[in-house]
Design a binder for these strands. Structure first.
Lengths: 150, 150
DNA sequence: TTATAAATACAATAATGTTGCATTTGTGTT
DNA sequence: AACACAAATGCAACATTATTGTATTTATAA
């Protein structure tokens, strides 16, 4: 699930996007790539509490601008960020997959493997992008609830 | 588009849900039913600036709990609320339609007429609900941009 | 008309996100 | 290797959005 990358690859990523290789940015990258769920600013802040809040916000913003991560809102309306896959470019995201928000663990999964169904809009509407949300139980939480643990 | 209802009908709605018929609630209802787009707390506040902000938040919350309106987040992650159609019940929303967020006027349209495509999730995921988002130009704004007004 | 529970208004607080600026750091150049 | 400069970070202040507690007001049923 989670894409495995080493520190050299993260440095390359930054360089490719004309971003300086700084410790905070590398740490954010490695955290986001180590998980298969999206990450919010609060998530980052709780782990990297030695990095300034504002810095984290700004890192997330540049990464999004550069097409490294994309933003997705969870059920509570808080912004979460997930690593983009190959076909995202600067200021032009291809975010057309299913976002699954677990109602128990609150994690947001990007299910890239699912391709979006084509659909036609009512007359007059011109869509530029689609996003599909689902909420429910993720594999981990549905297993837990089945055996009534917790 | 916008559902036409009179004040008696709004009073009935409140009564049906065991909510007291108060002036703020009736005003919120009539505003929300008069538009075909979703409404945010800031929207309400700018129009009804004589009503306390907190009251508006609480009204939106009860209405959502009672299944009168449902919450949908716009592109900026701010909560918008739209009137539900018939099949929503208390604490059990049927929100499975397309939400269209115009990138120009920022309005959120609920396109109920569009039925959701069926889709199968990866193994282990148990979906309870789906929501489909699209962003782009709404009919009004696409017409404007075509004739290069503004 | 009155009693009571519910709803509102107001004040205070919390959480989240943004802006401006001084300081520090990375990087290309000498 | 050292310097210069732009970029990034850290810090302080502020803005916005949402929540909680409580006194006051209001709707409704007795």
């Amino acid at each position: 699930m989670a894409q495995v990358k080493n520190n050299y690859q993260f440095e390359d990523m930054l360089q490719k996007h004309n971003l300086k290789k700084t410790a905070p940015r590398l740490r954010v990258l490695s955290m986001m790539y180590s998980k298969n769920t999206a990450t919010s600013q609060p998530d980052l802040e709780s782990v990297m509490n030695d990095i300034d809040r504002v810095t984290l916000y700004r890192i997330l913003n540049v990464f999004e601008e550069k097409g490294i991560i994309h933003k997705v809102f969870d059920l509570n309306g808080t912004a979460n960020y997930a690593v983009c896959h190959s076909d995202c470019q600067e200021n032009h995201h291809h975010d057309e997959h299913l976002h699954f928000n677990c109602t128990v663990c609150k994690n947001v999964y990007c299910l890239n493997e699912l391709n979006m169904p084509r659909l036609t809009l009512p007359a007059g509407f011109e869509a530029q992008g689609f996003t599909l949300y689902a909420s429910g139980l993720c594999p981990k939480c549905s297993k837990k609830s089945a055996v009534k643990v917790n």
